[in-house]
Simulated assay, not measured.
Amino acid sequence: MTQQPDGELPVIEFVAPLPGFPRHRAFALVRLDEDGLLYALTSVDDPGLRFLVAPPAPFFPAYAPEVPEEALELLGTDDLARILLLLVITTGESVAESTANQLAPILIDQVSRKALQVVLSGSDLPVRAELTAAA
């Protein structure tokens, strides 16, 4: 996702609210570093509500979850190439204590800007995977 020419960040609309945040559906994805490793998913209506997210590849190169068909239907696409996959990061006192939620990734259709957090039920993926595991 790139910034729009006028400097406005594109708004991402969740087709279903994030668990625990039923009133927040519009978010902006803000890059936090030059390498594109970390982003802040920030509520448009409440900028104090932010989630630290990251693409999985730099931390978990083998992470390739099977995306449920129902999730793609909710996003209005069947083209996996359009989907940006992000993991929610929980920060600890140090990087070694920070974790990523592999069980419930966020899927963003980069064309429509629709998003969904999906719980990959039936998988044994961890909710708290150590970020240093792939280092």
Rank of each mutant, 00 (worst) to 15 (best):
L32G: 06
F27H: 05
L52D: 01
R82D: 10
D35M: 13
A57N: 12
L116C: 01
A57Q: 14
P126N: 06
D33H: 10
S112G: 05
A115N: 05
F60E: 08
P55V: 03
P17V: 02
D79V: 08
I83C: 11
G122L: 11
P58C: 09
E93W: 11
L49Q: 00
A133I: 08
T90D: 07
F21Y: 08
E66Q: 15
L38Q: 09
I108A: 13
R31C: 04
L72E: 00
I89L: 09
F27W: 13
I83G: 07
D6N: 14
P55L: 07
P47D: 08
R113A: 05
A115T: 06
A54L: 14
V44I: 01
Q117F: 03
P56I: 01
E8W: 12
R128V: 00
G20E: 04
L72N: 00
D78R: 09
T132A: 11
P58S: 11
L9W: 12
L80R: 14
P58Y: 14
P55Y: 07
T132Y: 15
L37I: 12
G76T: 00
T132I: 15
A57C: 10
L87W: 15
S94H: 14
T91F: 06
E93N: 06
F21N: 01
L9A: 11
L85E: 14
D46I: 06
E130Y: 15
L86R: 04
R82I: 11
V111I: 04
A71R: 15
E34P: 09
V15S: 03
L9E: 06
A129R: 13
E97I: 02
R113H: 13
A134G: 15
Q117E: 02
V15K: 11
L75A: 07
L86I: 02
A100Q: 01
G92M: 08
P56D: 03
S94I: 10
P5A: 09
L41R: 02
L18W: 03
P56V: 04
D33V: 05
